[in-house]
Nucleic acid binder design. Structure first.
Length: 812
DNA sequence: GAGCACTGC
């Protein structure tokens, strides 16, 4: 709701409620910052049956009372009652009155008056705006949404649902958010970088707006009790108030394992078998850490309950499972070998499971209490035992489906398809099922307690994937997935003692990722001393400093003296231009420099491809199956074709990516042809959208360029390929590596073919899937280092040594 | 000589 709308009286406030004025209520009506439970929104959503973001734990809400004007009680505020005329259909009203949040409705509405709502996921923003428009009987031009690539907001819009990143970009353009009178931040407990920064920024915006007598109200909605950081007095001068909203969840009984088996996939398998054979109807959701575990568990379960195969005739992902598993088996041999050379990190070896033996010996005796709940009391045990009576397990097939983010959309959607009649539903999922997707029919949750996370070294930027224990909050969120339709059961495959050692909450994203892009954005908002910013969880001074220094070397920040004579890093003109582009600063700079020699359209495509996760499928090589071997050879050949020869080939993996995008753009590939070419359709579509967005921004920033979205770009000339490599070098000197010099003095054969870089002690290696893997150029640039035992450089490009003084002198 | 959880601008 915009200020103008408010003045036009769409929301009518009446002051006829004096008799109820009290110290309690008058502060509510005038609070500037309120933190409320997310149930308010998730209930709206749940009643619509939409997918989207839900949270359903009980929650405390916090309300910040910024009525600092009323100090010493000399000013008496009158309570104002808010009347919002809404014409809902009878059906929707029936739903509404069942929602637990209705009890607090008036309190919340009075506290906030009207809504502009920040949500962390795109689909959720779109579906919620549609749902709220329907419930309020208003057109989409009034209740609208805005996400990265699209939106339907108009000048008539009064309620806007948007993702957190969109609002952060808006703050960059309008620091006081003067269009808005209320901001609601939903799902704040997820602690995304954007919502954290937004909350920090808004703590300042709220008081600035209050000083101007143009109040902004802020509601922070959180599904967990993790509000300590949001209440810190670094953020809000007076402590925010809670509004607590009960959850609409059904009870979930949680069972801990008596002991914790390291082979958690093995335990998960046994648990599913037992639930399926002996527990009443209801879907099963299993949480594991990664794609390979998903595929392995599916394979075991389908071979145990083969009747399910007949039921789920369309399981064309069978092949994929096999592929992944074979590749994995091959790798585990490598691991054993690698162990002797000392390059191995701890990893659960999936192949150490003895599948055969427990397929044969699985008598699933109910006395095997180890696999069940060691900690539950007698009542629980009785509940657990009773349903076994008169239960005929043979009658029920198990319908197993995989679920992880990289699974193609049409396969993900299978979880919403009607269940084959008479079968039990079982989904094996990664963390996607914890927050992003809601799965229907789930009554049982099996939680391995494990998740895979990407850990960054904030100094070198190298990252690795680690399987670790989840947090208590995560475990509770997982358990909650069982109680959406009826009372549920959650089986934790770890003991309560192990659980008690879990972190209370997951580490906020901002503490893990290198903050370069963020620091640049903050500098553009005139936040010069970033270390003084009121982060809900401040990143370390060192990581902020490293980011500043990288941005300085990149030529986006400059050292300036402020009034007191002390030195500060401030953003320069180039930095400000770069910050318009919603990509990492290195890539933004590439676009800014590319407006020469006709390179801009190519650089935009390349940057789009580099900014999207996994545009090309990972080529899994397998030794023992002819058909699959040929497939990986075929895909590999396509990549070498894209890389070309001569100057193009020296652009290396970036030439592969660029030409893949150009091919996709020129013939807007179908799902099938993408698969044929080894591209991920979902990712390529995103690349296409990002190209469009970057093109629009470039046209805004450089008015003369008239950049178009031509489907067919002519192939680059030899000269242009050279220039492109120089341009990239001038933006990525930080990522240079030089080949290890093999000489009598440096004769370590283990280091042959390795590289060293300025920022890292350990040797680096070109990833075997790189087209430059055999070429081994003396100097090269990488996009990313991934640590999987060895430190591998991904997306590599060759660099001519003689270019270094001119294009990368600060890094030498 | 062989990868990778998740999400937003």
């Amino acid at each position: 709701m915009t200020k103008q709308d408010q003045e036009q009286g769409l929301l009518q406030r009446s002051n006829n409620d004096f008799s109820e004025a009290s110290t309690h209520t008058d502060s509510i009506a005038d609070a500037d910052v309120v933190t409320a439970s997310t149930s308010f929104l998730s209930d709206l959503n749940a009643s619509g049956g939409e997918t989207g973001s839900f949270s359903e734990k009980v929650e405390k809400s916090v309300e910040v009372d910024h009525v600092a004007l009323t100090n010493e009680g000399c000013k008496v505020e009158l309570r104002t009652t808010v009347h919002v005329p809404v014409f809902r259909s009878e059906e929707i009203n029936k739903f509404r009155y069942k929602l637990p949040v209705v009890g607090q409705e008036q309190e919340i509405v009075e506290a906030i008056l009207e809504n502009d709502i920040v949500i962390p996921r795109r689909i959720a923003a779109v579906s919620m705006s549609a749902r709220v428009a329907e419930e309020m009987n208003l057109p989409s031009e009034i209740v609208s949404y805005q996400i990265r690539y699209e939106g339907n907001a108009s000048d008539k819009t009064r309620v806007k649902f948007m993702t957190d990143g969109v609002l952060l970009k808006e703050v960059q353009r309008d620091l006081l958010l003067s269009k808005y009178s209320v901001i609601i931040v939903d799902e704040a407990h997820e602690r995304s970088i954007y919502s954290d920064i937004l909350i920090g920024l808004m703590s300042r915006i709220v008081s600035l707006r209050a000083k101007r007598n143009d109040r902004l109200k802020l509601v922070i909605m959180s599904a967990t009790l993790n509000v300590k950081e949001f209440l810190s007095d670094r953020l809000f001068k007076s402590t925010p108030r809670f509004i607590e909203v009960p959850s609409r969840m059904f009870p979930v009984s949680v069972h801990f394992s008596r002991r914790t088996d390291d082979l958690y996939l093995n335990s998960a398998y046994r648990m599913v078998v037992q639930i399926h054979r002996y527990m009443p109807d209801g879907g099963i959701l299993v949480f594991v850490s990664g794609k390979k575990e998903v595929c392995l568990l599916i394979k075991w379960l389908r071979s145990t309950f083969p009747s399910a195969k007949a039921v789920s005739a369309k399981n064309d992902d069978e092949n994929m499972d096999e592929q992944i598993l074979k590749a994995d088996s091959r790798k585990s041999h490598k691991r054993k070998r690698a162990k002797r050379t000392g390059y191995v990190t701890e990893n659960i070896d999936l192949n150490s499971y003895d599948i055969e033996s427990f397929l044969k010996t699985d008598n699933t005796d109910l006395n095997d209490r180890d696999a069940l709940d060691g900690d539950c009391d007698l009542a629980d045990e009785e509940n657990f035992m009773n349903p076994y009576l008169n239960f005929e397990p043979e009658d029920t097939p198990l319908y197993c489906l995989p679920l992880y983010s990289m699974l193609p959309s049409h396969k993900q959607k299978q979880i919403y398809d009607p269940l084959p009649s008479g079968s039990r539903f079982c989904v094996i999922a990664t963390n996607v099922a914890e927050t992003s997707l809601t799965i229907p029919h789930i009554k049982y949750v099996v939680d391995t307690g494990k998740e895979k996370v990407r850990l960054y070294d904030t100094v070198t930027g190298a990252s690795k994937f680690v399987v670790q224990w989840i947090s208590k909050a995560s475990a509770n969120q997982r358990a909650g997935r069982a109680g959406r339709i009826a009372p549920g059961e959650c089986y934790r495959l770890y003991s309560s003692a192990v659980f008690s050692d879990f972190l209370d909450f997951s580490v906020p994203e901002i503490l893990n990722k290198p903050p370069d892009e963020l620091v640049l954005q903050m500098k553009c908002m005139n936040i010069v001393k970033v270390h003084n910013f009121p982060f809900p969880s401040p990143p370390s001074g060192q990581s902020l400093q490293e980011a500043e220094s990288r941005l300085c070397k990149l030529g986006l920040l400059e050292v300036c003296k402020d009034d007191s004579g002390s030195e500060r890093m401030k953003v320069n003109r180039l930095g400000q231009t770069v910050a318009f582009f919603p990509v990492s600063p290195q890539y933004g700079k590439m676009i800014c420099l590319a407006n020469q020699h006709g390179l801009l359209p190519y650089v935009v495509c390349l940057v789009a491809a580099l900014s999207v996760r996994e545009p090309l499928v990972n080529i899994v090589d397998t030794t023992d199956s002819d058909g699959i071997q040929k497939e990986s050879e075929r895909l590999s050949k396509i990549r070498y074709d894209w890389a070309g020869s001569g100057q193009s080939f020296l652009l290396g993996d970036l030439a592969v990516l660029l030409n893949a995008v150009l091919q996709f753009e020129s013939s807007y590939c179908s799902v099938e042809s993408c698969e044929h070419l080894g591209m991920r359709f979902k990712a390529m579509k995103e690349v296409h959208q990002l190209r469009k967005q970057l093109t629009n921004i470039a046209n805004g920033v450089f008015p003369q360029v008239n950049l178009t979205l031509e489907a067919c770009l002519p192939p680059l000339t030899t000269q242009q390929y050279r220039l492109l490599r120089q341009l990239i070098l001038s933006c990525q000197g930080n990522n240079l590596a030089k080949r290890y010099e093999f000489s009598p003095e440096n004769a370590d054969t283990k280091l042959k073919n390795s590289y060293c870089s300025g920022i890292m002690q350990e040797p680096l290696w070109i990833h075997p899937t790189s087209v430059l893997c055999k070429r081994l150029p003396t100097w090269l640039l990488y996009q990313e280092i991934i640590d999987s035992g060895r430190k591998y450089m991904l997306n590599v490009m060759a660099v001519e040594p003689e270019w270094l003084p001119q294009f990368a002198s600060v890094y030498l």
